Amino acid sequence: MVDVDETTAPTAQRTAAHWTLAGLITLFGLVVFIVVVRQGRADSAVLFVALPVLLAAALALTPRRTAHGRVFGATTVALLLAAVALHEGAVCVILAAPLVYAVAHGSTALIRALREANRPYAIVAVPLLLLPGLEGSGIAPRVDPEQTVEVTRVVELPVDRVAELLAAGPRPTAVRSAPLRLLGVPTPGQVSGDGLDLGDRWMFGYHGSAHGPGGHLLAEVEDVAPGRVGFRFVADSSITARWFTWRHAELTWQAMGPGRTEVTIQVDYARGLDPSWYFGPIQQVLLGAGVGHLLDMLALE
């Protein structure tokens, strides 16, 4: 008679159950991805938070010991495939990668810790981890999508000379901002237009890429006062339109003493990416650098 280890059957059953659950989670994640893309919610937190949680949960539940290694590999592949499927550039992958990796590995660590502590209901942690990924999905509201960035610079020029330079409009200028250069953030390569009178227009053209035409941004003067000009945006087909929407811009200047003038540009925009706690500060920094580049294009130095 052959002796049978009584622990073999339960272990095999647990292994089969883990594989089945991991497969179901993976299938659910695939369905979520397809639905999100088709419904135009690919900029919501579902893509950057919820899907990595599902991926991590599926891999963490598989009966192997190298979960973090598998999560890293699978997450990397998923990022690259998403970039191709959604026609995103390298800058999007670079900006989203820290969030996606952190969510995936954090979820993996939590689920494995619960499993190793012999908690039979470790899977209940997944719905809780998914909650931050609902922002902007239509199920949960967006958080503070309307943002404002302001950049002020004091130049060593008299106020009347500054007014003349501003009226001449922007000109193409090499990018000086280190973040913009390192990340390869799109900046205008073609600039035209001048004037600070009602109806005057400034056009910012972007170079095309392998993903399509670069497009352009068209701003028009809508209100004028001494030392202040307000712009509205009448057209935006630029490659940056998916990440944010320009609302309004205001250009002001005032004398700060003999031969010195303070110039300020304030821009209101709507953030296009969620979650807010991650992409909000990132877009604030990058748009601040972009507005600084606009000041460079005005040739005030």
Rank of each mutant, 00 (worst) to 15 (best):
G193C: 09
G292S: 14
S44Y: 00
A58C: 05
G230Y: 01
D144E: 14
Y101T: 08
L51P: 02
L130E: 05
T108Y: 03
A219Y: 04
L27N: 07
V91T: 09
T66K: 07
R14K: 09
A117L: 13
H18S: 15
L110C: 08
H105V: 12
P10D: 13
A60N: 07
F33K: 13
A85W: 09
P120R: 14
M297V: 05
R65N: 14
S107E: 00
T7F: 13
V49L: 03
P188F: 04
A78E: 03
L61H: 11
A83V: 06
V155D: 01
V2I: 11
Q190E: 13
T264R: 15
A50K: 02
G259A: 13
L114S: 04
H293C: 11
E135M: 03
V4H: 14
P10N: 12
V234R: 05
H18G: 13
I94N: 01
T20C: 09
A104E: 02
A97Y: 02
M203I: 14
R14L: 13
R112V: 12
P132W: 02
A9F: 14
V155R: 06
E88K: 11
V93L: 15
A60I: 07
L30C: 12
V36K: 02
F231D: 03
P10K: 07
H87S: 14
E156W: 04
Q284N: 13
R161C: 02
H18Y: 10
P213F: 05
P281K: 06
V234N: 08
D197H: 13
V53G: 03
T245P: 00
D160E: 15
P158F: 04
V2S: 10
W253D: 00
L27K: 06
A178C: 06
L47F: 06
G290F: 11
V84F: 09
T7V: 11
W202T: 12
V49S: 04
W19T: 13
